[in-house]
Amino acid sequence: DDWEIHFNNITIRLHGVSEEQIEELKELIKNGAHEEELRKWAEEVNR
Score class of each variant (00 low, 15 high):
27 E>M: 14
22 I>G: 03
26 K>P: 00
44 E>Y: 06
5 I>N: 02
23 E>C: 10
24 E>V: 12
44 E>H: 10
8 N>H: 10
30 K>P: 00
42 A>L: 15
27 E>S: 11
6 H>F: 11
19 E>Y: 13
10 I>W: 04
32 G>C: 11
21 Q>P: 00
6 H>S: 11
1 D>Q: 14
46 N>K: 09
12 I>R: 02
17 V>D: 00
38 L>D: 00
8 N>C: 10
3 W>S: 03
43 E>C: 04
25 L>N: 00
31 N>S: 12
7 F>N: 01
14 L>M: 06
2 D>Q: 12
36 E>K: 08
19 E>H: 12
41 W>F: 05
35 E>W: 10
6 H>K: 13
6 H>M: 12
43 E>R: 02
31 N>H: 08
26 K>A: 07
36 E>T: 09
13 R>F: 12
21 Q>G: 02
15 H>G: 04
34 H>V: 11
42 A>M: 13
37 E>G: 03
8 N>W: 07
41 W>T: 00
1 D>N: 13
29 I>E: 00
29 I>S: 01
8 N>A: 11
40 K>H: 09
38 L>M: 03
7 F>A: 04
14 L>D: 01
45 V>R: 02
40 K>Y: 05
47 R>H: 15
19 E>N: 12
5 I>A: 07
26 K>G: 04
46 N>H: 10
32 G>T: 01
19 E>R: 15
34 H>W: 03
21 Q>T: 08
7 F>S: 03
40 K>Q: 11
4 E>T: 13
21 Q>S: 06
1 D>H: 15
3 W>R: 04
11 T>C: 05
10 I>R: 02
25 L>G: 02
4 E>N: 07
47 R>C: 13
13 R>D: 12
37 E>R: 03
2 D>R: 11
24 E>K: 11
19 E>C: 13
44 E>P: 00
2 D>A: 08
42 A>I: 15
47 R>W: 14
9 N>A: 10
22 I>T: 04
44 E>K: 07
19 E>L: 14
33 A>F: 04
27 E>N: 12
8 N>F: 06
15 H>K: 10
29 I>G: 00
40 K>G: 05
7 F>I: 14
45 V>C: 03
46 N>R: 07
5 I>M: 08
41 W>D: 00
25 L>I: 06
10 I>T: 08
23 E>L: 12
14 L>I: 09
16 G>W: 09
29 I>F: 04
37 E>C: 03
21 Q>Y: 08
2 D>F: 15
47 R>E: 15
21 Q>H: 09
40 K>F: 06
7 F>H: 05
19 E>M: 11
15 H>R: 07
16 G>A: 09
23 E>S: 09
17 V>I: 12
39 R>T: 08
31 N>Q: 11
22 I>W: 07
33 A>G: 03
17 V>H: 02
47 R>V: 15
1 D>G: 14
24 E>H: 11
44 E>I: 04
5 I>E: 03
21 Q>N: 05
9 N>Q: 08
32 G>N: 02
28 L>V: 02
3 W>E: 02
22 I>N: 01
12 I>G: 03
4 E>Q: 07
14 L>P: 03
7 F>G: 01
18 S>R: 10
35 E>H: 07
12 I>E: 03
17 V>E: 01
42 A>E: 10
29 I>N: 00
1 D>S: 14
11 T>L: 12
45 V>P: 01
26 K>M: 14
31 N>T: 06
4 E>M: 09
26 K>C: 15
20 E>L: 10
46 N>S: 07
23 E>K: 12
40 K>S: 08
44 E>N: 09
28 L>Y: 03
19 E>T: 11
43 E>Q: 06
41 W>R: 01
24 E>N: 06
38 L>Q: 00
14 L>N: 01
17 V>F: 07
11 T>M: 09
25 L>A: 02
43 E>D: 11
25 L>R: 00
5 I>D: 02
47 R>D: 12
8 N>L: 08
29 I>C: 12
11 T>P: 04
44 E>A: 06
21 Q>L: 12
14 L>H: 03
27 E>T: 12
22 I>H: 03
21 Q>F: 05
14 L>T: 03
34 H>M: 10
47 R>T: 15
25 L>S: 00
4 E>S: 08
12 I>P: 02
47 R>I: 15
25 L>Y: 07
10 I>C: 12
18 S>Q: 04
15 H>L: 07
36 E>G: 06
4 E>Y: 14
15 H>I: 10
43 E>V: 03
4 E>P: 02
17 V>A: 13
17 V>L: 13
24 E>S: 10
47 R>A: 15
42 A>N: 02
31 N>C: 12
2 D>P: 09
45 V>A: 15
42 A>P: 00
30 K>A: 12
12 I>Y: 04
47 R>N: 15
36 E>Q: 07
12 I>F: 05
23 E>N: 13
27 E>I: 12
38 L>A: 01
13 R>N: 13
14 L>V: 11
15 H>C: 05
15 H>Q: 11
10 I>K: 05
36 E>H: 08
30 K>V: 07
13 R>T: 13
